[in-house]
Nucleic acid binder design. Sequence first.
DNA 1: TAATATTATGTAATTAATTACATGTTTTAA
DNA 2: TTAAAACATGTAATTAATTACATAATATTA
Lengths: 174, 174
Amino acid sequence: MAQKNRLKYIILGLLIDRPQTGYDLTKSFDSDIGEFWSANHSQIYPLLNRMETAGLLQHDQVQVGEKLVKKRYSVTDTGQQEFFRWLQEPSPLDNAHDEFLLKLYFVKDQHADLLRVMVTEQLALHQAKLDNLNAQLADKFPTTQQQTQSYGHYQLLRHAILRERDYVAWLGEI
Amino acid sequence: MAQKNRLKYIILGLLIDRPQTGYDLTKSFDSDIGEFWSANHSQIYPLLNRMETAGLLQHDQVQVGEKLVKKRYSVTDTGQQEFFRWLQEPSPLDNAHDEFLLKLYFVKDQHADLLRVMVTEQLALHQAKLDNLNAQLADKFPTTQQQTQSYGHYQLLRHAILRERDYVAWLGEI
DNA sequence: TAATATTATGTAATTAATTACATGTTTTAA
DNA sequence: TTAAAACATGTAATTAATTACATAATATTA
């Protein structure tokens, strides 16, 4: 296969939480989960069809206005099993396809001026990201109650923040 | 495009360092750079052809034994320019397609037992990786001279180690 | 010297993902 | 009320990447 098709599991996870249309799923990649995963509607709609054919999903129709009929997808028992099977299988370590790290690998001789520009620029990007993540954490998880309610999401944000903090510190050193 | 085709730049970078055959390039993904990037020979050979057609590479032929003729690729001026242009352009932030984080996102209600198994397993993987990285650092960069000689590679290893250390600490907290 | 492993170079089939093309409905705001 | 924005659902073309298929020369080792 070309890629792992983990989108399948994301769709299952999102639909287990709440039945949704393809459009809804597409939207959720613009916010929330979009922070660490991406997908286009042109990938989602055909996949929903394939997953339904494979017996992982089903849909009912929701009338909107006079003419429009939305397809609301939900997860079948088979789909639920598939999702929990995935949750329980070991997760391979990802070897970080970070383009900046790749460039750094090729900077053989310190090339001082170029390196400084590269690092400064990257530092700004990561600092901005870190600020954004901190703002999100404050916005979405102001109370400890909300933290335990969506524990995974909370820990994920925390992880992202730690990672960015680390990255910024490391860049600072160079 | 489907992906960013950063492999093109990796090939340029490796060939600028030293002219090599497609086979050599393939090998270097089994060690060294394979630590943080991967590519198969079936991707490399056609790409080398396309890059040569595009004027980024050229090759000469090296006779080996009686019959075998190897193609040794090197980078043209155009290829060098393309590579340095890439080095200087800003690097987009990667939003970490980490499968474990993805799973964690969907663990809504702490599901204590499953979560513990997942975290313990992942912790072991990252700890093993961390040990391996530390061993590599000690092996490849025993002296400060070697650290400055391949500064990028050294910093990359250091970064990977910091990242794993961080990941292990964060997993420990959960 | 014969078997095996490694070197060496490709192509084919399949799947995944991005960008662009395409169309129509409903809601909101000027 | 009409124009614009958002909702809603697809297909087509292209590129990237993985797995499998395919072949042959050279070096190593038993």
